[in-house]
Design a protein around this nucleic acid. Structure first.
Lengths: 221, 221
DNA sequence: AATATTTGTTAGATTACCCTAACTTTATTA
DNA sequence: TAATAAAGTTAGGGTAATCTAACAAATATT
């Protein structure tokens, strides 16, 4: 099915929201509108169109749910997005915080061959530069058990697995700390007072990070 | 200046037409509309908009001419188009006739950094897979003296420099003949009767090609 | 439970790009 | 040069995506 640039963005947004809302994969109109930076009225209009095309299922005043087709389309876009991010980061030396904006545009290029060739060119990466899993051509996604850094205890060691907060400010801060996907961390001490942590980043001198920081980083034990 | 997808296509079309019309760099409304696959009325509308933005100069019922800014913008798009074609051809194993369609989409991605990094990644190519010159970041374009194969005489030798007719059918025919940019040709005999030529392609057995063929291929002596 | 708040929808307008049909201007040719 | 043909423009309309303002439904609060 031929989707417009905008329709694709709505599907991707719904998919992303379904990831965020853990247990329940539905979203609300306002939530969706806010995510996309449009007014709720606009989202309602588009929802009707997507429903017409059988990409979402919802009743007036009810929750929005992706249909199977809608979900598949969304995953296809996410796949493109993450492959392009990987390309920009690995081949064109883009920094962590620059890849997203450009990938937002590249993800809409229509060419099945392009996506598959790109994946091959990148040697079938499993994760993008932010540590998020890249869906395969068949829609499958590698799953890893991610823990928030803030859930660890004194003495725990871990490896950075993914970034929860992908804001530019956070990404730039990580860069300054030389933290990247795969970096080894060990928790020296959790400070009960404010939830901050003393951690060691690879072999560097220990340093303190805030609770907010620890809640923005996924790690793997 | 921020240009829409469509505005960019109009500028590129005007630039391409100015190349085609050799001596005079203007175009007509119908010519332009035909090139872009829209109706003349639509082209007139867009022309008003482009004039408003100072990208073209023209008077009602007069010829259309790109302004300096319009020309520069057009060249920037052409640069992206040809760099992407080169990427697809060299890095992703796309065939000659497949690159154009995808590059038509990729050329509209907005990111100065992307273009320049891509150029670097490709090692500053001077020509695209069709042999057309790739504009530099400053707008300069390498120039080569191209001759049509049909202008050669008995015994002349040459190297394929560029493709004039970039239709899929022609590109596929070239592929079948193992002709690519840089292939050496020698003209064994020009047949006066119908303008066809007996040529030798590299070390292969001589074969005949039509006048139409010879008029679709640029060579370098 | 009645009221207030939040959430979602409808109606009507706007902008960009495209169309057809009718018209005007410019170019060609008999 | 007058008639015809070609090229270009205008007027009026359609669709996609957006908005604001007003309204309706669902949820939360006292």
């Amino acid at each position: 099915m031929m989707l417009s640039y905008t329709e694709e963005n709505y599907l991707k947004a719904l998919l992303k929201l379904s990831f965020q809302n853990e247990d329940k994969p539905e979203a609300g109109t306002n939530e969706m509108a806010a995510y996309l930076g449009v007014k709720p009225a606009t989202a309602t209009d588009m929802l009707k169109k997507l429903k017409e095309k059988n990409l979402v299922s919802y009743q007036k005043y009810g929750k929005i749910l992706l249909t199977d087709i809608g979900r598949k389309s969304g995953i296809a876009i996410l796949r493109k997005h993450r492959l392009w991010e990987t390309f920009l980061y690995e081949k064109l030396d883009f920094s962590w915080d620059e890849v997203h904006e450009v990938a937002e545009q590249l993800e809409h290029i229509q060419s099945a061959k392009l996506v598959d060739k790109l994946e091959e060119f990148l040697d079938f990466p499993e994760f993008d530069p932010h540590g998020d899993p890249i869906p395969k051509a068949n829609g499958e996604m590698p799953v890893i058990t991610k823990t928030l850094l803030s859930e660890l205890k004194n003495g725990d060691v871990c490896k950075v697995a993914a970034i929860k907060d992908t804001s530019t400010l956070f990404l730039q801060y990580l860069e300054k700390l030389h933290i990247t996907i795969g970096t080894n961390l060990s928790v020296i001490e959790v400070i009960a007072f404010d939830g901050s942590l003393n951690i060691q980043i690879e072999d560097a001198d220990p340093r303190s990070v805030s609770m907010k920081f620890a809640e923005s980083l996924f790690v793997q034990r």
